[in-house]
Amino acid sequence: MAIAARSRSGFYRQEVNRTVWEVPERYRDLKQIGTGAYGTVCSAWDRRTGAQVAIKKLHRPFQSKLFAKRAYRELRLLKHMRHENVIGLLDVFTAEISLDRFRDFYLVMPFMGTDLGKLMKMEKLTEDRVQFLVYQILKGLKYIHSAGIVHRDLKPGNLAINPDCELKILDFGLARQADAEMTGYVVTRWYRAPEVILNWMHYTQTGKRRVLIVGMLWDVGWVFLERKTLLSGVAVDIWSAGCIMAEMLLGKPLFKGSDHLDQLREIMKITGTPSPDFVVKLQSQDAKNYIRSLPKVPKKDLHYIFSKASSNAVCVLERMLLLDPECRASASEALELPFFNEFRDIEEETEALPYDQTMDNTDLPLDQWKRHTFTEILTFRPPRDSKGTSL
Rank of each mutant, 00 (worst) to 15 (best):
residue 124 K to D: 03
residue 124 K to V: 07
residue 124 K to L: 03
residue 128 D to F: 11
residue 128 D to N: 13
residue 129 R to L: 13
residue 129 R to G: 01
residue 130 V to D: 06
residue 131 Q to M: 13
residue 131 Q to A: 04
residue 132 F to V: 07
residue 133 L to A: 03
residue 135 Y to R: 06
residue 136 Q to L: 03
residue 138 L to Y: 11
residue 139 K to F: 00
residue 140 G to K: 02
residue 142 K to E: 02
residue 144 I to N: 00
residue 144 I to V: 15
residue 147 A to Q: 04
residue 149 I to M: 00
residue 150 V to I: 14
residue 152 R to T: 13
residue 153 D to E: 09
residue 153 D to I: 04
residue 154 L to E: 05
residue 154 L to M: 10
residue 154 L to W: 04
residue 157 G to A: 12
residue 160 A to F: 15
residue 160 A to K: 03
residue 163 P to V: 06
residue 164 D to T: 11
residue 166 E to S: 09
residue 166 E to N: 13
residue 170 L to Y: 07
residue 171 D to L: 14
residue 172 F to L: 15
residue 174 L to G: 14
residue 174 L to Q: 12
residue 175 A to S: 15
residue 178 A to F: 14
residue 179 D to M: 14
residue 180 A to K: 12
residue 180 A to H: 10
residue 184 G to N: 09
residue 186 V to C: 12
residue 187 V to W: 01
residue 193 A to N: 05
residue 195 E to I: 04
residue 196 V to Y: 00
residue 196 V to I: 15
residue 200 W to S: 15
residue 200 W to D: 15
residue 202 H to E: 12
residue 202 H to A: 10
residue 203 Y to C: 04
residue 208 K to A: 14
residue 208 K to Y: 13
residue 208 K to I: 15
residue 209 R to P: 00
residue 211 V to G: 00
residue 212 L to K: 05
residue 220 V to M: 14
residue 220 V to G: 05
residue 220 V to Q: 09
residue 222 W to G: 05
residue 224 F to A: 10
residue 227 R to W: 10
residue 227 R to G: 06
residue 231 L to D: 07
residue 231 L to M: 10
residue 234 V to I: 13
residue 234 V to K: 09
residue 236 V to L: 03
residue 236 V to R: 00
residue 237 D to V: 07
residue 237 D to N: 08
residue 239 W to A: 00
residue 242 G to E: 04
residue 244 I to V: 07
residue 245 M to I: 01
residue 247 E to W: 00
residue 248 M to Y: 02
residue 248 M to E: 02
residue 249 L to A: 02
residue 250 L to M: 08
residue 251 G to V: 04
residue 251 G to L: 08
residue 252 K to F: 11
residue 252 K to W: 05
residue 256 K to A: 14
residue 256 K to N: 03
residue 257 G to E: 07
residue 258 S to K: 12
residue 258 S to Q: 14
residue 258 S to N: 14
residue 260 H to R: 06
residue 261 L to M: 12
residue 261 L to Y: 01
residue 263 Q to V: 06
residue 264 L to W: 12
residue 265 R to P: 00
residue 266 E to G: 01
residue 266 E to K: 15
residue 267 I to G: 08
residue 268 M to D: 03
residue 268 M to R: 08
residue 269 K to R: 14
residue 269 K to S: 03
residue 269 K to M: 09
residue 272 G to Q: 03
